[in-house]
């Protein structure tokens, strides 16, 4: 028994070290005085100041935040509808197709989704004259892959709870809409909250779909980070990484609180 406990302890130490040492090093080197990301030259907030004055990076971050807000909200609404249908409507024409269409974006390689979405927008521009590539096309792209994740979370939550609560409300004369609003919605609210957060994170972090559908004039935060990182390590990216990890940790704690309630 002691041997087994020691084995578990060793495995977990190694596993978590593997997961966290690279992140910890990135954070530590955001406070490095040297330009070289690999040589420690003393503590400094130089790169933090540099990032806070990096207009291009800040405006890209602002754009990414706006895109993530809109697409997370849109995909939560669509994902709620899709998840509800999957869990509660067993039969309608095209049910099979509907089911596979909801899951497919989760497993579709992103490069494939990116190229197909771009071809759609190029086609619509040819034949319909719009939309111009930029904010709107990125929101549509992000919503399309995020809504699947929200739908799965909602469906799982709906499958978990007792259906008789909804049936009781209906028996007492509530319309389906009233039942949904007063019984179903409060029960799945935590799932909706964590689904929204997931969609928000996916959108904020997306590079591939965005690169395809963004057009020439639009640069989101991951696009900026990618073009900077391609040229090698950059201390300002370390600062950005530190901020992202701090925000993600906070968001995760909120999300865990939401789902546990």
């Amino acid at each position: 028994m002691v041997g087994r406990a020691r084995f578990a302890f060793t495995v977990l130490c190694f596993g978590y070290a593997f997961l966290y040492v690279p992140i910890a090093l990135v954070i530590a080197y955001s406070f490095n005085a040297s330009r070289l990301v690999t040589v420690w030259a003393g503590f400094s907030l130089h790169w933090w100041q540099a990032l806070l004055h990096n207009e291009a990076m800040l405006s890209a971050a602002w754009l990414s935040l706006r895109i993530a807000l809109v697409s997370a909200t849109l995909s939560t609404l669509l994902g709620l509808a899709a998840g509800y249908v999957l869990a509660r409507v067993p039969r309608f024409p095209g049910r099979m197709l509907f089911g596979s269409l909801v899951i497919a974006p989760m497993v579709m390689p992103e490069v494939v989704m990116g190229i197909s979405m771009l071809l759609l927008f190029v086609g619509s521009q040819q034949f319909l004259g719009g939309p111009d590539r930029g904010f709107l096309t990125i929101v549509i792209g992000h919503t399309t892959f995020s809504l699947s994740f929200v739908a799965i979370v909602v469906q799982a939550r709906l499958a978990d709870f007792d259906r008789s609560l909804e049936e009781a409300a209906m028996d007492l004369g509530a319309t389906p809409w009233t039942t949904f609003r007063t019984v179903t919605l409060p029960l799945i609210a935590p799932a909706l909250g964590s689904g929204w957060l997931l969609a928000f994170t996916l959108s904020l972090d997306d590079l591939i779909m965005t690169q395809f559908v963004a057009g020439a004039a639009t640069q989101t935060l991951p696009m900026r980070v990618y073009s900077s990182v391609r040229l090698g390590v950059d201390p300002q990216i370390n600062v950005l990484a530190t901020i992202i990890v701090a925000v993600a940790a906070a968001a995760l704690i909120v999300s865990v609180r939401l789902t546990r309630r």
């Binding site: 690279p22 992140i23 090093l25 990135v26 994170t201 904020l204 972090d205 590079l207 991951p222 980070v225 990618y226 990182v229 390590v233 990216i237 950005l240 990484a241 992202i244 990890v245 993600a248 940790a249 968001a251 995760l252």
Partner: peptide, 10 residues
């Protein structure tokens, strides 16, 4: 929940 790009960068 952190950025995939950043984790590769690490």
């Amino acid at each position: 929940w952190t950025s995939f790009l950043i984790r590769v960068y690490a």
